[in-house]
Design a protein around this nucleic acid. Sequence first.
DNA 1: GTGAAATATTAGCCCAGTCTAACTTTATGC
DNA 2: GCATAAAGTTAGACTGGGCTAATATTTCAC
Lengths: 150, 150
Amino acid sequence: MDDDNSEKASPVEARAVESRAEAFQGVRDARRSEVAEDYVELIADLMLEQGEARPVDIAARMGVTPPTVAKTLDRLARDGLVTRARYRSVFLTEEGRALAEECRHRHEIVLRFLLKLGLDPETAERDAEGIEHHVSEKTLKLFEEFVSGS
Amino acid sequence: MDDDNSEKASPVEARAVESRAEAFQGVRDARRSEVAEDYVELIADLMLEQGEARPVDIAARMGVTPPTVAKTLDRLARDGLVTRARYRSVFLTEEGRALAEECRHRHEIVLRFLLKLGLDPETAERDAEGIEHHVSEKTLKLFEEFVSGS
DNA sequence: GTGAAATATTAGCCCAGTCTAACTTTATGC
DNA sequence: GCATAAAGTTAGACTGGGCTAATATTTCAC
């Protein structure tokens, strides 16, 4: 594979290694914010549907237990995405609303893209949920073009 | 939004909630195995390139520190994906090789798909890294068709 | 073959995200 | 309006995945 086959890395190789490492770094960063994005998106949905976002409903839709929701909401509050009062529903801050809107938009595009590609709605929804957090702006743009194109 | 606007959920709504919860559950499952997949894929690459996979090289390419690699490798060994001896390179088990091959295949398809869509190689590599773990068999099939088609 | 450099490991810390069990508060039915 | 049910919280545990600092081992140059 190498021109020298030993461990003295060429500058070109070093650059490739670095770039690869950055890619993984990026994926890890995305992972960290995934849960937060899922929550704010869901909270926005619930507020639309029911006028408020109750932890018990968040738990049901996320498929986790209420204590997990509580801990996560504390973190979101700490990070300025939601406001909450004990034993009350949770609400989005301005920042939270903005993030939710951005996520909804991204989710929408990815979903429509998958559907246009010919995927069944059920699978499209599942895959979109996982994919949406890992799609760069450039890719999203291409997805958008593909959806509206022809 | 609702026909009744109260909290007594209809069976249809209950089904939707359940389905949503399962989707998130699936994403969480995928997240759990992502790191393992990245490691076995990388180990396979390194063995091809250099004949062996050393922790120090894994660390460099993953963009993490050697202790993190050590801990992860222990987990992979526990899960039967790699074998290792102290102070020695790591090797894939049969199961690990199979997983690596499957990942390589998936990665390849996702990457080629993104490139065909018109994405630049750098971004395509980054996005593929994140997306590949969240693509269902059905979607992969569609990607494959898209790549070979026309 | 020995000493320095490179590599690998261990110990110990942190945070996120999940859980169960136990407890508190709020909401509801009668 | 009170008892009970529902919802929310707290406490405590576990796992994964990251880190730094310190230690152990191997490799390599000479």
